[in-house]
Nucleic acid binder design. Structure first.
Lengths: 122, 122
DNA sequence: TGCTAATATCGCTGTGTGACGATGAATCAG
DNA sequence: CTGATTCATCGTCACACAGCGATATTAGCA
């Protein structure tokens, strides 16, 4: 595809990471894990999905290095690998959503008025 | 990633934005546009894809508010809506990739470094 | 007026994957 | 040991979508 100087491998790596966040269910899992360590069983109950579905998403996030697993007895505890690492990404995404006006349109906790952020461009 | 979590609608909004970056082709388009304004024809030639494919990806990115179009004559010029807005996101992703041992270097223009956009001549 | 170039859009197809249920492997309780 | 609980994995299905070609549309050119 990129026969030129740009790096295909790098592009694939970035795209794969973004895929982790591009799925509503995975994003919800990350949100829930942001509140602390949870077992698969807890997440299944909270998300109202099949256990196999949740387990597969967790495997994906582990493979991305975003979360870590800690088996204990019959259960397996999952937690964010590094919460501080995710904050800049979420913040950057929030900034973009605000700047593009999608946030005010879709996110209700942002003062539901018609006001949209104005881009300061030069 | 706040402790309170996001509602479903907000989660969908975030996921939709991340989808724009989760596709290797779209990411490559953003990289190329980071070097300056381009026509569809230029991108088609550079990416070695069908014109309809490139056009569809461009529509997606416009709908996300990440790029803007400027019709001129028969051609349509596309450019990043706000390069400065993308840099924090790419930088955050790069930090995660480094921390997870999957570091990969993306296009220079999309990464941090405060200097303004430089147009390259074809 | 045609004719070409550039783009957007439509329909189609193959692939990827998110969802589920079923099954197997551990682990604990009785 | 027997049975229940918890999780990972497998097979399957349905749907989304990236890719393509074909076509419509618009703008420039002879």
């Amino acid at each position: 595809m990129n026969q030129g100087g740009l790096d295909d491998v790098a592009t694939e790596a970035y795209a794969h990471l973004f895929q982790a966040f591009a799925e509503p269910t995975r994003l919800a899992i990350l949100q829930h894990l942001a509140s602390g360590e949870h077992r698969v069983r807890d997440l299944v109950e909270h998300m109202d999905l099949a256990q196999s579905t949740v387990s597969k998403h967790l495997s994906f996030l582990v493979e991305c290095g975003l979360i870590v697993s800690r088996p204990q007895g019959r259960a397996t505890w999952y937690a964010l690998a590094d919460p501080e690492l995710l904050k800049p990404l979420i913040t950057a995404a929030e900034t973009i959503l605000e700047a593009t006006g999608k946030s005010a349109q879709l996110c209700q906790h942002l003062r539901g008025g018609g006001e949209t952020l104005v881009l300061e461009k030069n």
